[in-house]
Design a protein around this nucleic acid. Structure first.
Lengths: 341, 341
DNA sequence: TTGTATGCGTTATCAC
DNA sequence: GTGATAACGCATACAA
């Protein structure tokens, strides 16, 4: 008996083949369910493989097949439940379809995003899903130039004809503001996100749409750009209060911004919704739990990820030449009225 | 001029070598900063590589080097901000150290967890980080038997001597309950997590520790196991109220459970903290934002992930034989008193 | 200093 | 139905 190695070598296809008394080729065909292998040998090989607890080396397979069954995912902010849920949706459909995901977090930083994408390309992912920071179009152009299949999630570039799955931001914002107007509000503060963000741009339009439909003139002084964080909402309300602008309602870029806004409003002894109505956007699960429960625009976050992943897998599957005709998929938002408005 | 292919082949090291007029070997050495290559050729090769926009194929490299620079991560619930933040910490240090992460979500399902781990092993990850569901020890045993470096995060198995990075759950719970007692509470409801969860077990002990230190007898009727979700907290409070048990404070397994509990208490017209004090656990960022701001036990979530990742990288780096002597790292929790108590 | 040859583990192309 | 053999892209032991 040989002295056992401290670290036993992994069992390879060669080991299985040898133990089963067949060629390595036959072993491969047997295990992969390929035709032209007798049931007898197939069964024998499978038995041996199971007994040896053989696991195919996906790295070798990936190299050989020029296909890794891996999707690259770069999200803008993993700590934000919105993106975490999107990622969850992506992961779920990927797993269901036999794909793994390599996840990167850009932290809303353009440089990190570009770096992440380069890494993913080096790792030969079959496709990439990305919620772009949108501080530049560099990432998208790089991917197109490299002919790497990709789809944008939650955000997209208006000028570029690239595959994307988004929420109907304009309609969602319009819905929310319309609701506020229906409640009798005419002076509606809008705490928006960063101006380069496509959702922010579109939600601003939705805000304007709703005003226009009600014959309320648009006043730029009522919109404040924030960094889309709760601290941004908090600061924006303080700023608004200090500046003396009058408002009876505030529509926010996200639930997070809402939470910050609500906190600032309360510190100013304003009651919600009696003194000021507040609506958010996203409908993260905490929105329904906090007090007052937040009126907000629901986005099917998990679904967003699932649909995007399916779209990407479709692009990968159809081995035809570059097909940019996949286009934009828009998911409908949904207003959910709770207690804050 | 040739008709251009719809999809141009990727540029390989061979292409670079050819264009630079050197052997593929020299090209490799030049680009990888290996010694024994003249500065002249190195510069030339690098220039050619840059001009061709050469990207090394990490799959091929991984196969050759028996090392993928990839970490497998399986979290229990990606949609839960706690795990999302842990994952964020892992991703950040991995990226910093030149590693990518393959992320899987077990959704607290033992079967999915085992499946995920098998996939990760097949993909030749260099190590695995996992927040185990703990419904069985199968995963850990599998990893040990396979000699795959791994470390447990946030949860661990008391009987097993495996590397893990956790929060000091017992001390954290003790701290929180002690605080409640200091405020004069003696009838403290404890909404705990599932009984197989190591954090739940330890926090129960912490709860008991605090009671004992104050000379308050432990009453099993005051502890209710929940599924650790907000709906679980909500239901638990309703149950407690219906059963008629008296309590003036409630300590919760997590902030999520707290939120559900608070909602149920408010529906019963109980004021917080005047009628009932509430404390949570985790200190997710929303805890500071909601009204009333939640008193809770802070866990350095991102740090948890970072420390665990570093530990794993250390295990991978030290190419010594299996070293199970790495052991347990315990991070100190911190009580943060806000408005709900 | 540089080139040649081999192999990582697998699948695919061909004979047999 | 089965088995050699090549190739995927790269890194390395060794020869030159």
């Amino acid at each position: 008996m040989q002295p056992s190695k401290a670290r036993t070598r992994r069992v390879t296809l060669r080991d299985v083949a040898r133990a089963a008394g067949v060629s390595i080729n036959t072993a491969s065909r047997a295990l992969n369910g390929k035709p032209d292998v007798s049931e007898a040998t197939r069964a024998r090989v499978q038995a041996v493989a199971a007994q040896l607890d053989y696991r195919p080396n996906q790295v070798a397979r990936g190299l050989r097949q020029q296909k890794t069954a891996t999707l690259g995912v770069v999200v803008a902010d993993l700590a934000n439940p919105f993106f975490a849920e999107v990622a969850e949706g992506i992961e779920r459909t990927a797993a269901t379809e036999g794909y793994s995901i390599i996840l990167a977090n850009s932290e809303e930083n353009q440089h990190r995003e570009e770096q992440a994408v380069r890494t993913l390309v080096e790792r030969q992912v079959d496709g990439i899903l990305i919620t772009p920071t949108q501080q530049s179009e560099a990432t998208v152009r790089y991917l197109m130039q490299r002919h790497v299949p990709f789809v944008l999630v939650a955000r997209y570039f208006e000028g570029l004809d690239v595959p994307a799955v988004v929420n109907d931001d304009r309609e969602g914002a319009r819905l929310g503001v319309e609701h506020l107007i229906t409640q009798g509000h005419r002076e509606i503060l809008f705490l928006n996100g960063p101006p380069y963000n496509s959702s922010a741009k579109l939600r601003l339009r939705g805000y304007q749409d709703a005003l226009e439909a009600a014959g309320i003139p648009f006043r730029p002084s009522l919109v404040i750009n924030t960094d889309a964080r709760s601290s941004g909402g908090y600061a924006a309300i303080q700023q608004a209060l200090a500046s003396g602008v009058r408002f009876t309602a505030v529509a926010c870029f996200s639930d997070y911004v809402s939470f910050g806004a609500i906190r600032a409003l309360r510190q100013a002894k304003l009651r919600i919704p009696e003194d000021v109505a507040v609506i958010g956007y996203d409908d993260i699960d905490l929105a329904a739990i906090v007090e007052p429960a937040l009126t907000t625009v629901h986005i099917a976050k998990t679904r967003l990820g699932q649909v995007a992943a399916h779209m990407l897998l479709g692009m990968i599957g159809s081995s035809s030449t570059d097909q940019p005709q996949v286009g934009l998929t828009v998911l409908p938002p949904q207003l959910v009225i709770r207690e804050s408005s």
